[in-house]
Design a protein around this nucleic acid. Structure first.
Lengths: 218, 218
DNA sequence: GCATGTGAATAGATTCACAGCG
DNA sequence: CGCTGTGAATCTATTCACATGC
């Protein structure tokens, strides 16, 4: 576990694109392509080539001038950088509409993540089986955390419960949280929080949609 | 429909925060607060006060020095700017796991959006009723579009189908797309595309989680 | 006096353009 | 010769700090 000092500082924007590159590289690998140019990778990832090269340069100089990048090697390096060479136990809080869908979501099967527990505050839901798992009560979070060591907590509760759930996750020692509830959630320093908010995305689309409508009628 | 030239250019980052402010303002309004300071709004939105003031200044000078912003007026101005004073018809493509959850999602009930059609490429799913709507076939998209005029299309299909679905949505005249499929999708200029990608979010969390683990053991 | 509104300063991300190297 | 790697230039976003005006 020790060793490996963190030498390079990778920009946030780059970190957010690495998974996109990785996905493209898996496809390319499936097609038996041994190397790939920044230009081709850029095309597959929907960005431009300069960005690909700059992004990859933060990981180190893994390309060969005049040739491109070795696909297999790049897959390995990006996977390692993203921490996907190990398994992260995931806990889902809230098994309503969305929590259900998430619990069944095959995307988790992508290597690196495994749902290890489902919890809900509603006693009526406790015991319900979803796939391999039975829903447990939110109050049992400390015990569940101690036993299963979830690294990532997913909040799939109504907005009103989100902050309290986040507080409990943090108290249970979870330092990475993905919030699906439509609410602003605050976490202490040292905890990483990301959010996925459908209603915000729709409102952003609405803004640009309106602009289009306006300019069309101008 | 005509008139209203577009005078101010609102930065993308600001557009993405307006829905967050709006949500906070609804809460504040429910608590009978008539005015709010940038500082308080910042707190509720999880950003800093300077950002709130700068963001709101792009919409115009709607605050009163020494006092703050009128909550009701600000709600109206932001709603108008985001295009939420009208109803946007939404079409969902793909009624699998996620599509189902989205179709039932109460977040749509938030004013401004209404699901007007559900389509799927699988004939076995056609006819299935979800809430008020019956699932229709993807091939009927042109007719559905002509009749219901969806403004926003949501892609909730497997990754492999995403690009083709996007192409069909664009062909049907839809210019705003929200993609939930874990795939890069390209759209022509003039079409707004946003994506929500669970597996990318998990991988980003994994990156920072690994950093934490590393620095903890350093 | 107090909180907004905004130029100026800073930080961060993207793109350019080309030197460097296989 | 071709494609990477990267400084420099540009663009975008954030933050500072204070003049402005209620």
């Amino acid at each position: 576990m020790a060793g490996s000092i963190t030498p390079r500082r990778i920009p946030e924007a780059t970190v957010a694109r690495l998974p996109v590159y990785l996905r493209a590289l898996f496809e390319v690998r499936d097609q038996q392509q041994a190397t790939i140019s920044s230009e081709r990778l850029a095309e597959l990832a929907g960005v431009n080539a300069a960005k690909v090269r700059k992004d990859l340069s933060y990981l180190g100089s893994y390309g060969t001038r005049g040739v491109g990048y070795d696909v297999e090697y790049l897959v390995f390096q990006i996977s390692r950088e993203l921490g996907l060479t190990q398994d992260w136990p995931v806990l889902i809080v809230g098994v309503g509409n969305l929590g259900h869908a998430l619990a069944n979501y095959r995307g988790f099967l992508v290597r690196g993540f495994r749902v290890v527990a489902l919890v809900d505050a509603d006693p009526a839901k406790v015991g319900e089986r979803i796939g391999e798992l039975a829903v447990q009560h939110l109050d049992d979070l400390p015990a569940i955390a101690a036993e299963r060591h979830p690294a990532i907590g997913i909040i799939a509760t109504p907005a009103a419960a989100a902050q309290e759930v986040a507080d409990r996750l943090v108290a249970a020692g979870i330092t990475s949280i993905l919030n699906f509830a439509p609410a602003v959630v605050a976490v202490p320093e040292g905890v990483t929080l990301r959010k996925v908010d459908l209603s915000i995305e729709l409102q952003i689309l609405s803004f640009y949609q309106q602009r289009q409508a306006e300019s069309a009628s101008a």
